[in-house]
Write a protein that binds this DNA or RNA. Structure first.
Lengths: 212, 212
DNA sequence: GTAATCTATGTCAGTTGATGACATCTGACA
DNA sequence: TGTCAGATGTCATCAACTGACATAGATTAC
């Protein structure tokens, strides 16, 4: 999650804003892990960061949005990676590269960002409601990826089922790879290994050229 | 959605309850389609059925729950079908039978139930929030299916990634098959054709014996 | 450097979804 | 018929948002 280094030469305003955003995020995550997601109110979070509750909603559209924070970034990376892949590459292969790019970004991120990610991930696993939202967010990403893949394949995204299957299978692989079967999955390294395994399994499952 | 014919010889109370449940559902669906999901309040729905808002929440745990009504039934059918399949059948094949069972149940249901389903489905497609919830509900089903499949395969559900991939791919196929690319998908027959296509595509995508 | 402007934030009031507590009414059943 | 359990209504309350407006602090123009 290398989100902190996007801005380079920006005004005081922007920097302060980003600082506040991260402060809210960190305070919220800690409160969530401490006393549970549901029993943490927006007022508490706002209080911890010393902002008004109204301001909270100017940074995050909802309480849920907090927990899905890194999804936005991940989606961006996947789309960018996908666009950079050669057009003649089989789409599923391109998508696996996109998956790995997300992982790589995580490994390259600052310790703080990685810690945030791991904490949020734990949260998602403990809370079915949040887990559901995460999956839902993944579905939104899937749509965007499908549009991109359809364009690359030169087919109509509204009718081509194969495109949807390709993307859906890729996202399914990602979900399985990122799953948290046991609480010992607290290191980025472990997640990386698991995702690799999942991708390998997936790639070996398909017939050659199934996705063209 | 053959949910109305479950009760056979039950008391007046039960029948009345079921009637109320369907009345709420129908009133809600119509209001949703008429004026949008978000701008329909629970008070309005309750008013339309002439019950107190508090009672509404005794029938449906939330407004969202309404829109996911048929998921419960679908999940039941999938699990039942899966359990009835021969143990030596490849798991993905068993799961495709489970998918088709859901579809068959829909085709066999009363006209009212089918209409409810189609309306709700349209609603899900128009409202990203609801669509997300639907996907999330699918993820919950996926978990239960994974447990069942793991048991049938004799593997540990917490560690066996292949099991998760198999189920995730099956659910992905289902989602693609049920998708509503164009608004002309207003007949059960059309959905059936599309799901068949998706299943065929999926089955041809895999190497033989990839799921054993 | 100062004035004009833009924007982040606070305050306040209001809507809506959801839940607990308690009273009441009605079908079930002896 | 009378008792009891379960269904419903009423009331109070909480928490997640949202719009409107005022203000303070950052940015820009001059």
């Amino acid at each position: 999650m290398t989100q902190t280094d996007r801005k380079v030469t920006v005004g005081l305003r922007e920097r302060k804003k980003e600082k506040t955003r991260l402060a809210i995020l960190d305070a919220a995550i800690d409160l969530f892990l401490e006393q549970g997601y549901d029993s943490t109110t927006v007022d508490q979070i706002a209080g911890a960061v010393e902002i008004s509750p109204r301001t909270f909603f100017r940074y995050f559209t909802s309480k849920d949005h907090l927990a899905l924070w890194f999804h936005d970034h991940g989606e961006e990376i996947m789309l960018e990676t996908l666009r950079d892949r050669p057009l003649d590459e089989p789409p599923f292969t391109s998508l696996t590269h996109a998956l790995r790019a997300v992982l790589r970004d995580m490994q390259d991120s600052t310790a703080e960002d990685a810690a945030r990610f791991l904490k949020l991930r734990r949260l998602l696993d403990e809370n079915p409601h949040l887990f559901g939202l995460s999956v839902a967010r993944g579905a939104a990403t899937e749509r965007r990826l499908a549009e991109e893949v359809a364009a690359r394949r030169g087919v109509d995204v509204t009718t081509d089922q194969r495109t949807h299957l390709i993307v859906a299978f890729a996202m399914a692989t990602m979900r399985v790879g990122f799953e948290c079967p046991r609480p010992d999955m607290t290191a980025v390294q472990n997640i990386a290994r698991q995702l690799d395994e999942a991708i390998d399994l997936a790639q070996n499952a398909f017939r050659p050229d199934w996705d063209t």
